[in-house]
Amino acid sequence: MINILSDGCMIIGLVFWFWGTWPLLGQRSVLYKLHSLSVADTLGSMAIVMGLLLRIPHEWPLLLLALISLAIWNTVLGYVLAYCSTREIGHDG
């Protein structure tokens, strides 16, 4: 039961990864790609780590820390990248 749940989490995470990383190859703007990357890197990775957590419950503190730092860092990074790249565009005109 737990194994099925864990596999499900990891598969969802991998689907998120592929779906969110694929637009990187396109020609959209940086911000549009940032949206899909936040799906892939934050939510997808969190789903994968949840899957790992269900598989090895006795190491929960470390994986919980991984979850928290994933959420915080990736979100803040999204904000910083958005801020830095748009100020440049705003400078152009």
Partner: peptide, 26 residues
């Protein structure tokens, strides 16, 4: 060639590699 697109790729790779390290450790 655009540097911000490369930064996005870098961000993506940094996250993915560390999640991969976690997965391998499990």
């Amino acid at each position: 060639e655009d540097i911000w697109q490369r930064m996005l790729a870098f961000a993506s790779i940094a996250t993915k590699t560390s999640v991969m390290i976690l997965a391998v450790s499990v």
